[in-house]
Structures are given as C-alpha cells and as structure tokens.
Amino acid sequence: MAQTSWGAPEHEPRFPQLTMETLTPAQRPLGEKIMKISSVGLAGPYNPMIRSPEMAQRMYDLLDYLRWHTSVPTRLNEFAILIQGRLWRSQVEWYAHYPLAIKAGLSEQVAADLKANKRPEGMKPDEVAVYDFCMELSTKHAVSDESFARAKQVLGEQGVVDLTALTGTYVTVAMLLSMAEEGVPPGKEPPFKAGER
C-alpha cells in the first residue's frame, strides 16, 4: 500500500481522527483525561483505543501505572518501550518515546544502535539486563535462567513482573497503531524508512 511522507496510508483512514467535539458521552470522560497527559492529544493509539471506551479506560489505567508508577526506573522503562517500538517498527512508539528515553538518561548511541537493528554497544549493566530480558521474551517467547536472574538482581521481583507487563502492553499498543495505520504527525519524519529491516 502506498504511504504518505509521514507513514500514514494514502487511502481514507481506517479510523478518522477523533476530536473532543466528536466524542460520544461514553468516550468524553476518558478523552478529557487523555488530553491532560498526551503529547499527541487523541491521536496515536488513543484514536483507535477510545472507540472501545471501557477497554480504553482499563488500558489507560494500566498505562498510567506502567508509565508513572512502575517499580522500573524511567530510563529502563523507556528503553523497554523503544525495544518494542523497534521490534514492531512502530513509527508512533519510536517517535513518541525516543525523546523521553533520551531525557531519562538513555544514551543516544544505545538508541541509535537499537534503531539500526543492532545489539546496542555501550549499554550500562542494567540496560543489558533489560535488553536481554525483553529481546528473549519477545523473540524466543522465553527467558533464559541467566537473563531472568540478571533482571531480577537489577529490578527485583516486582520489577521483573512490571517489566514483563510493560513490554507486553507496548506490543498491544504497537498492534493497535499498526491495525489502525496510525502515523507520526503530519510534517514529521517517520523514524523507520520504507525498506529498512
């Protein structure tokens, strides 16, 4: 399918962009919450999510915990989100979370290597633990004893559970974005170019 310059399809959108004015009474309370915290407003994953208001509210509550109240340090949390963004080539996830990861202290070189689909060089020991854990779980659907032990040592039991929930939740976010063919904002460059692995 042909793509526009920002990675969205050239045909009619699968889900026309919602605005506060177009929300139903069932959607409006969550829409108001989203507008207070979202850098993309009702765009990105919220545009398809809110079409199922009850599911969207529950997902919003989970994302609220996983983003702002998790036991996983912000730098590692954002790194894990970028890992899923890269695995899924999720334009919106990478676009939204790359600046957050850098602001939280992730090295630009580590992010650049990840974006280039390479095992990042120069990772800190806790980043190695998160990378190996997330990559094994996502690509092998299992975690080796060594990777589990390292992640548990770095994050503790709660952290390992929180990291697992985070990485799985951002697979769901990537799926919603992909299914809905959501792209980065108009005029912005998509992180992943056509034909890149």
Rank of each mutant, 00 (worst) to 15 (best):
M1N: 15
Q3R: 15
T4M: 13
P9K: 15
E10W: 10
F15A: 02
P16R: 02
P16S: 07
P16Q: 08
Q17D: 15
L18C: 11
L18Y: 06
T19R: 09
E21Y: 03
T22F: 04
T22P: 03
T24A: 01
P29R: 00
E32A: 02
K33G: 09
K33H: 04
I34M: 02
I34C: 03
I37F: 05
S38N: 07
S39F: 11
L42M: 05
S52Q: 13
S52R: 08
M59Q: 07
Y60G: 00
L62C: 10
L63T: 05
L63V: 08
L66Y: 01
R67V: 04
H69G: 13
T74D: 15
A80V: 13
A80D: 06
I81V: 13
I81C: 08
I81E: 11
L82W: 14
L82N: 04
G85C: 07
L87E: 06
L87M: 10
W88G: 10
S90R: 06
Q91F: 14
Q91E: 14
A96R: 10
A96L: 13
H97K: 05
P99R: 08
A101I: 03
A101P: 06
I102S: 10
I102H: 11
I102W: 06
G105S: 04
S107Y: 05
A112W: 03
L114D: 04
P120W: 03
E121V: 04
M123W: 01
D126E: 06
V128R: 02
V128G: 06
A129H: 02
C134D: 00
S138Y: 09
V143I: 04
S144V: 01
D145S: 07
E146M: 05
S147G: 04
S147K: 00
S147P: 02
R150L: 09
E157M: 12
G159L: 06
V161W: 08
L163T: 05
T164N: 09
T169C: 14
V171W: 12
V171N: 08
V171M: 09
T172F: 10
A174R: 03
A174Y: 07
A174M: 10
E181C: 11
G183N: 11
V184A: 15
P186T: 12
G187L: 13
G187R: 15
G187K: 12
G187N: 14
G187H: 10
G187P: 07
K188E: 15
E189F: 07
P191E: 13
P191M: 11
G195I: 15
E196V: 08
E196M: 12
